[in-house]
Design a protein around this nucleic acid. Structure first.
Lengths: 201, 201
DNA sequence: GGGTGCATGTAATGGGTTACATGATTCT
DNA sequence: AGAATCATGTAACCCATTACATGCACCC
């Protein structure tokens, strides 16, 4: 029951509802707008565009340019907008995404505390980078289009990312303190086990 | 290249490093311990146990019980522990999980503001439920095993969930206020700014 | 008699990434 | 000369969920 046909087609419809685009553009646009919570690979985009076209949800026309490859530009149809709306009307089912970092951390006892410390430091780095992107590029990109009726929703999504990243950073700080304590204890207890300190990078 | 063989086998090794278990137990244990950030279905667990056994990373013996079906109980081998450690030594690569709720919210303009409000309310509900589980059941479960060397790591993972859920709840509150304003404006053509203290649910 | 829990497994299906294949132009 | 960007697509493969198949015991 309950086909959970994932939203890989609908994200294309949604983007094409903003403006007509080629498959390549869709990839770029998705990456730079919703990329921090939704990715699509070209291996999905191109076949899905064909399926959408076959279903009459998008139209395509080929544009020729000198000096550049031909572009197949897609635009959403009335039927496509209807489909988009009916997809939006179905409440998203809550999902539990897998988090490999947490999984490894969970089993951290089997490995010297420096290793989990590495996980957490890396996590913090990634969060700082993403937070920077959200607070600068993403905010500015939305501000440039602040008249567009979707802008308030874009801001909400960005805000979600900001708050989540800040929570992760808070956690990382707290957790690093804890891990350092643990590493310190292990070191002073053991009879000076000479370990290779390949912690740095 | 870089086979990103996902961690579906390693989670089994990790759990079996705590104590020997059957496939059925593994499913239950995973759900109730790391289930808020890692799920495994039986369709993965049973075939993967066979593969682990074939690779000599786990042993199995069949237990017979009257009144209950036979159980195939698996235990981790020395080789399995080695494998677990070498998996833990590889830093988890940062991943960007898909978030369908955010995706639908991002395209919220195409639908009356009440619809995205539904998404956010549902999100808040789920977060409250999970937060309750983490602060009660999960914490207590760890406290019962506080002597186990893995306990500190389990606490860190739980803490991650708590902070994340609180961030999501904060966001949900903030976002609902915003969405109510938007719905209000749409309704009375942006005339009165009077807010209704209780928007219908 | 029927639902629930224990218990193991396979098959069908669907979803998604990555590698491969091609090829022109522009930038360094 | 070689790398990067623009541009489209297919094929192989991997991963994962779900449905199906089986069956006993216990409780209501």
């Amino acid at each position: 029951m309950a086909k959970r046909s994932s939203s890989s087609m609908e994200v294309l419809l949604g983007m094409l509802a903003i403006e007509p685009m080629s498959g390549y553009d869709l990839g770029m646009t998705i990456r730079s707008s919703v990329g921090y919570f939704w990715n699509e690979s070209y291996g999905q985009i191109y076949p899905n565009l064909k399926r959408l076209a076959a279903a009459g949800l998008v139209n395509s026309k080929t544009e020729r340019h000198k000096g550049k490859p031909d572009r197949r530009v897609y635009s959403i149809t009335k039927k496509g907008r209807e489909r988009l709306k009916s997809w939006l009307s179905v409440e998203p089912q809550p999902e539990i995404p897998r988090n490999e970092m947490l999984l490894k951390l969970f089993f951290g006892e089997h490995v010297p505390a420096e290793v989990p410390m590495g996980y957490v430091e890396r996590e913090a780095e990634v969060c700082r980078a993403l937070l920077g992107f959200l607070e600068r590029e993403a905010r500015e990109g939305i501000d440039k289009n602040r008249h567009y009726p979707g802008a308030p929703y874009w801001r909400m999504a960005v805000r979600f990312g900001e708050l989540e990243m800040r929570a992760h950073l808070l956690w990382a700080d707290e957790t690093l303190v804890e891990l350092k304590k643990m590493a310190g204890k292990k070191r002073n207890h053991g009879r000076t086990k000479k370990e290779k300190s390949h912690a740095g990078r």
